[in-house]
Amino acid sequence: MFGLLALLVNILPYPLILKAGRQLGAFSKRFAKKRVHIATRNFELAFPEKSPEEVRQLVDENLKNTGAALMETGIAWFWPTWRLKRILIDKDTQVVRKHGENGKGVLLCCVHALNLEITARACAVIGLSGYGVYRPHKNPAYEFIQYRGRTRNGNKLIYRRDLKRMIRILRQGHRLFYLPDQDYGHNKSVFVPFFAVENACTTTGTSILAYTSRCAIVPGSGFRNDAGKYEIIADQSIEENYPQKDEVAAAAYMNKYMEAIIMRAPEQWMWIHKRFKSNPDSSLNHQRYL
């Protein structure tokens, strides 16, 4: 399957690759009823002011982009660098580059955009390589291809539970890609507002890393624009006012920036994930999706 994906993305023109992915996503709506329900509930919870028709349109577009994400993974893992450069725009990354010149570690906080694989490699292609947090795949063949794809152009990977190494590489002045926008369960998490949900389970990992390493904190994104190009943006360094010693305040502070990033292209975020599955009372987990 990976061989077929690599073949398709390398022989087809980019507009056709993107169109095929979006059509695949639209077709999947007939069979992925559970994912359609999750995405619909997420939009309803996050944006209660939207009408059922507006929610339906957002879900449809999100599913199309979910299908495109398969092709985008193929692009990120199998395209040659010269071809990838053609669809990248280094829109604003001067803040990150300045920290690098000063030898300061950067916690580059991104979101679970559906095109995340392209964003990660794109950063390396434009000279902003870093360390990604990941979970190895159980299948050795899949793991080999995934690891190779995610470490192209100088990126490196860190096991997601290796907190000590994350702190060490930040103290050494490197960049660490970190995604604090999902629901990772009750462990090392607090409940703070995220969009219209007042008690959204949010990781405290950001404050732990920032407090122990004294790194810079920069929100970043790489969404696809209307012309089909990916805009790499990392234009704010927010550590100065970040309440590192207060985990609850820090999580709420970071969520505001994550919301702002997602709203750059909300239809391209991973709404098919149960972002609001956890409740303060764990016995009520998943109640929002019934």
Rank of each mutant, 00 (worst) to 15 (best):
K188H: 12
L16F: 12
L16E: 14
V197T: 06
E49Y: 02
R224T: 03
N102I: 11
S282Q: 14
D226C: 07
M258Y: 03
I238L: 15
P243T: 02
A260W: 12
G3F: 12
K229D: 08
V197L: 06
H186D: 07
P180I: 01
L290G: 06
Q23P: 00
L12W: 08
P280A: 07
W77V: 03
V197S: 01
Q268Y: 06
T203F: 06
G222V: 03
K19T: 07
K164E: 02
S207Q: 10
A265I: 05
N62F: 01
L12C: 09
G132K: 00
I272C: 13
P136V: 11
M263S: 04
E240V: 10
D181S: 08
R264C: 07
K29E: 09
C215M: 08
G173D: 09
R56E: 15
A210S: 15
S237K: 12
D92C: 07
N279V: 13
R56C: 10
G228M: 09
Y253G: 02
H112D: 05
L45K: 14
A68L: 13
G130H: 02
Y289T: 01
I217G: 04
C123I: 01
N199R: 13
Y242I: 07
K64W: 03
L157K: 04
H286V: 04
Y14S: 12
R41P: 09
A26Y: 09
R30V: 13
Q244C: 12
P80A: 08
Y289M: 03
V36D: 15
I208E: 13
M258A: 09
N187M: 10
M1R: 14
I261A: 05
I167K: 02
Y147H: 15
L58R: 08
M258F: 08
P219G: 03
S207A: 14
R35C: 04
K229R: 15
W77N: 02
Q57P: 08
L157V: 08
A76E: 01
I38L: 00
Q172A: 15
N255L: 02
L70W: 07
E198K: 14
L88Q: 09
N225F: 05
L18D: 05
P266V: 15
N65Q: 13
G67S: 07
I169N: 00
F47S: 02
N199P: 01
Y14R: 10
K256G: 11
S28I: 03
Y184M: 13
N102F: 12
A120Q: 10
L84C: 10
R161Q: 08
P48V: 00
L24A: 15
Y178F: 05
M254N: 05
L4D: 08
S237F: 08
N65W: 11
E117K: 01
I272H: 10
S129P: 13
N139P: 05
I208S: 11
V190H: 02
Q23V: 03
G185L: 06
L5C: 09
K91D: 15
E143L: 09
N139Q: 11
E143R: 10
F31S: 10
E101H: 15
N115Q: 11
F191E: 05
M270L: 14
G205H: 04
K19N: 11
L176T: 00
C201S: 07
Q244N: 10
C123F: 15
E117Q: 09
R275M: 11
P219H: 00
Q57R: 09
V106I: 05
G21H: 06
P243M: 05
Y184W: 10
E239F: 10
R121P: 00
